[in-house]
């Protein structure tokens, strides 16, 4: 049990680090392409770690399986959304310089 708890904490911390890096990237990167890149890559890995941690912590294979499914669906949708956003940026490059801080 203690091994599982330690594993949960480690995965949570790693996930939070990835989320933190992604959020900093969202705030600090210069243009939209970089921001999308930082957000989707870091957040998907962060979400993977956190959902794994929750799945282990739940101690029930059915709940764990549901959480893994949630992660897979978010992975599919968010990577697709980032692709669509990137495509829009490519199509209208003027947005990049116009709207960002």
């Amino acid at each position: 049990m203690i091994i599982l708890d330690v594993l949960t904490v480690i995965l949570l911390v790693v996930g939070l680090v990835f989320f933190f890096a992604g959020s900093i990237g969202l705030l600090r990167f210069p243009d939209l392409m970089c921001r999308v890149h930082a957000l989707t890559k870091a957040d998907n890995i962060g979400l993977a770690c956190i959902s794994l941690a929750v799945a282990i912590y739940s101690n029930d294979w059915l709940i764990g399986l549901k959480i893994i499914f949630v992660w897979l669906f978010i992975l599919a949708t968010s990577s697709l959304m980032s692709f669509i956003i990137a495509r829009r940026i490519n199509m209208s490059n003027k947005i990049i310089s116009g709207d960002s801080r």
Binding site: F73, A76, T77, L80, F83, I84, R87
Partner: peptide
């Protein structure tokens, strides 16, 4: 958008 197509195949039934 073929990616949107494949996503709709995955997500809509779900």
């Amino acid at each position: 958008n073929f990616l949107l197509h494949s996503l709709s195949k995955l997500v809509v039934p779900a």
